[in-house]
Structure formats: C-alpha cells, structure tokens
Design a protein around this nucleic acid. Sequence first.
DNA 1: TAATTTATGTCAGGCGATGACAGATGACAA
DNA 2: TTGTCATCTGTCATCGCCTGACATAAATTA
Lengths: 203, 203
Amino acid sequence: MGLRERKKEKTRLALLDAALDLFLEQGYDSTTVEQIAGSVDVSARTFFRYFQNKDHIPLWFHDQGEETMRAVMRERPADEPPFTSLMHALRAVIQSMRESTSEDGARFLKLRRLLETNPALVGKSVARGSETERRLAEDVAARRGTDPETDQIAHLIVAFAMGVMRVGFECPPVEADSLHDVVDRMETTIELAENSLRPGWDV
Amino acid sequence: MGLRERKKEKTRLALLDAALDLFLEQGYDSTTVEQIAGSVDVSARTFFRYFQNKDHIPLWFHDQGEETMRAVMRERPADEPPFTSLMHALRAVIQSMRESTSEDGARFLKLRRLLETNPALVGKSVARGSETERRLAEDVAARRGTDPETDQIAHLIVAFAMGVMRVGFECPPVEADSLHDVVDRMETTIELAENSLRPGWDV
DNA sequence: TAATTTATGTCAGGCGATGACAGATGACAA
DNA sequence: TTGTCATCTGTCATCGCCTGACATAAATTA
C-alpha cells in the first residue's frame, strides 16, 4: 500500500472520528461540515470527496454490514431456508464486530449514542437500509429461482430479517452500552424471531 | 368553514398536485421548490408554510396512514393479539383508500409511480415510517403492560407488521397500477404473513 | 529528472430551509 | 360600514449542504 493510499485512509478515519466527536459534543445539526473539515485541517470540499454527504458519517457502518451480510449469503448452502441464512449473516455481522479493533468498537458505540439522542438519524439509517433490503431481496429471489420483482415471499423474508436486525441493534437503547451487550442482545433477538415463525415458512 | 380555511385547503392541494405533476414530468431532484410554488402563484416561502420541507410532498399520505392505524389500534379489543390488531389496522388503511375520492386515489397512484422511478424516495418514505414504528411500539407495549423501552417483542411485532405493509405496497412494482390492484395485493400479503407466523407468537 | 496521474484548495453558484419584518387579507364586533 | 385584531403572505437576508470547474501541489511511474 503506497503512501498515497495510507494518507487517504488516515484522512478518512480522522474525518470520521472528528465528526463523531463533534456530533456528540454539540449535536448533529449544529455541527457544520466546515467545522468537521476544519478540525482535520482539510477543506470542506475535500470532506465531500471522502463522504458523499454529511449523512454518510453516521451511516458508514451500514456499508460494512451490508457487504458482510451479502458475502455470507453467497457462502451459505443453496438449499438452506433463506431466513435461516439471513440470521447466520446477522450473526456474522456481530461476530465481525466482536473481532473489530478497539477503535472501530469505540466508533460503533459513539454511533449508537448518537442515534439514541437523535431519532432523525435513525430514520436516515433506516432509509439506507431500504436499499440494502432491495439488494438482499434480489439475492433471496435468485436463490429461490423466482422473479425478484414479483416474489412477495422473498421480500417478506428480507423485511422480517431486517426488522430483527433493527430491533436487535436499537432496542433497548441502553445508555452506556458495551459492545459485548449489543452482541449478546442480538443473539436473544434472533432466537426470539426464530421462535415466532412457523417452521418451513420461508422455503 | 370560513373562507380563510377553504383558501388554505385549496392552496395546499394545489401545491400538492402541482408538485406531483412536476416530479413525474421532470424528476424529483430537478424540480425546485420555487418551480412548484411558482406554478401555483405563490412564493417559495409560502410553500414551506404548508409543507415542512420538499420531502413532505411524497410523504403526506404517510401521516394519514399512521393516524388511521393508531386510531384503529385504540379501538381493537385489548385482549386481541397485537399483531392481529395491526393487520386489522392495515386493512383499515386500505379500506379508507378504497373509499377515498377519485382525486385522492389519483394522487396516490401518482405517488406510487414516483416512488417506483426514484428509489431514494422510498428510503425517505421508510425513514418516516420509522417514527411511526416507534409510536406504534409504544402503543403495543402499553397494551401488553410492558416498558416500551425494553420490550423487544413489542418492537418485533411492529417491525414485522410494518414490513408487511411495505411489501404489500411496494411489491411487485406494477407499472400501471390501479387502486384496486394495490388493495387486493395488500390482502394477499397480509394472509401470507399470517400464515408465516406461529399462532400465539405475539401474545 | 521528466511525465503522468491523482488529490487538494479555491472559487462560484444552485438549492433547500429559516428568521424577521412589513403589508395584505379575512374574521369579527361595535 | 367601520375599525380592530388575528392571520396569511411576500420580500429580504442569511445559513448550510452540495457540486462543477479549474489551477496547484503532491505522489507515482518511467
């Protein structure tokens, strides 16, 4: 990895951390992009070269999560019920969080604190999830050998799975959460969901 | 109803219709608030007195839907399983659509066409739904006599119900959809969901 | 070292959104 | 009808997000 790439990665993380800290200090809305960029000695224009827009700061982990989930989905056996595969994918996401560096873990916890104090951001996070949902529905439909446009069951499977994910991450909104707690709770939520569904509903 | 109120309602609908038509003609992003306001002979500032922001145009039906759902939820018997009540509430929403004026019906169909051509708007629509979801979860928790902050099942019930709603409304994205088709499909989706869940899961 | 690629800063500008103020318009009572 | 009051509206100024265009500086490659 050349100097150029290392510098870029460094700047990206610096912007991310500066933004998260500023958001938590003085609120999301009252923090301007100029402030974020300024505290890393970078122009505002450059900020937008690293993040598509201001919202992408609190949503950057979504991209990681989606990538992980889809990768796992491709690896699961083709004859496994899709919802089961999705739950495995979910477990993989939290597993990768468990194995993440302490810096990434800290970022995630900051993010959670940010989302708890700012419901509007939860909405934006969910909005981003809807794109993920569409892509996952395509994956599921492909596995089921159906048309992703018309296969309601495929969409329902994914919608339920993402619902499980959201509930696991967001509820209950513990104040001083540890990464470990989040992970454990997700496991609980998954079991709850699996017990709620009729066996074989997603074949 | 005085002249003042009638005028306001007229302006609101005029803005709504003008906006929807412009969005469909030239795209959501390339339509400015100034254009919308201009085509109704109103200042841009006034637009923002009728709609909180540009996004509220495609999301105005959400408010109606949420109101209907929560009203139905309050009327359902307290000992009915919450998910069942939510499905009744969903049916009430589409029933109210069935009974709506032809103008309102036309607006809804325009909206659907708009959402189909603009995935980003689906995201924003879902984002708005997340607030609804939180409020509904509080209602469900209240009925279950639990703490809405910690009752994961309440959140899961609502998350599943809203998933059913989204799938019913959005999938499949029929080109020239009639209001009747949308309504029928929602009924199918509801039955699909009810058959997927284990009886008594939501008590 | 020279040539090429890529990242950054600066500048100008559009668009969404809000506060403040003044003028127009409908509501209402004398 | 008239005058008062509440409310709606337009104008203006301003902020913040975001983008395109261009020049400069830095890293890569030959």
